[in-house]
């Protein structure tokens, strides 16, 4: 039970998927200009990533490993993720056309969000069971959402700052992401203590 708790803490804070593992930077930079879109993107990724982790575990554990096809793992995971993203897009289009409009190009781009492929692969590497896989996926995407929302709020405030010309826009955003990553270093070790 406690080990599950530490998996969750580790995924959200200590090994934050954006700040520590440096995965999923494309949406992190692309969708963080406005707070509302960041929240929407966060929820969409949370859903996709959690489902992707569960189904990729089932496929890996019951299909690929017994048949000795583990070299097809990356390929299979990509196909599964693409299917789940399509499903999510259909659901969002029907339930919330506004959000669909806002997320625009970024929703199909979840397919190419390397965090969505990276986290299931990390799950396999860490030999997580089904519950741990789901928790790790859920925690990672919560960490992604947290990073995205905090970053969006910071960028909205920085819009008014007198940033030197060569650093306007993406450059200062990258510097900020680096400093946020530095701050998250403070959590190092929090998941090791039992």
């Amino acid at each position: 039970m406690t080990s599950y708790f530490f998996i969750l803490i580790g995924a959200v804070l200590v090994n934050n998927v954006v700040f520590v593992r440096i995965l999923g930077l494309c949406p992190f930079m692309g969708v963080s200009k406005k707070l509302e879109t960041a929240i929407g993107m966060g929820f969409a990724t949370t859903f996709v990533l959690t489902v992707a982790c569960g189904s990729s575990y089932l496929i890996d554990h019951y299909l690929l490993t017994p048949l000795g096809l583990s070299y097809l793992r990356t390929l299979c995971f990509i196909v599964v993720i693409a299917a789940i993203v399509q499903l999510t897009e259909l659901v969002i289009q029907k339930t919330s056309p506004v959000l669909h409009q806002v997320l625009g190009i970024y929703l199909p781009l979840i397919t190419t969000n390397c965090a969505v492929l990276g986290v299931p692969l990390l799950n396999v590497a860490a030999k997580h069971d089904l519950i741990a896989s789901l928790l790790f996926g859920f925690g990672s995407s919560l960490g992604f959402t947290l990073a995205l929302v905090l970053f969006a709020a910071m960028r909205e405030r920085m819009d008014g700052a007198d940033v030197p010309l060569p650093f306007r826009g993406t450059a200062i955003a990258m510097v900020t992401a680096g400093l946020m990553s530095l701050a998250f270093m403070g959590f190092a070790g929090l998941d090791k203590f039992k």
Binding site: L150, L179, A183, F187, L190
Partner: peptide, 27 residues
């Protein structure tokens, strides 16, 4: 950070982490 973390004092990291949250908190 002091009790479980890897660094001797937590004030610096805690301040930076809450700095990140400030725009959201103020909003």
């Amino acid at each position: 950070v002091r009790a479980y973390g890897a660094y001797p004092d937590g004030i610096a990291f805690a301040t930076l982490l809450m700095n990140i949250c400030v725009p959201l908190i103020d909003m």
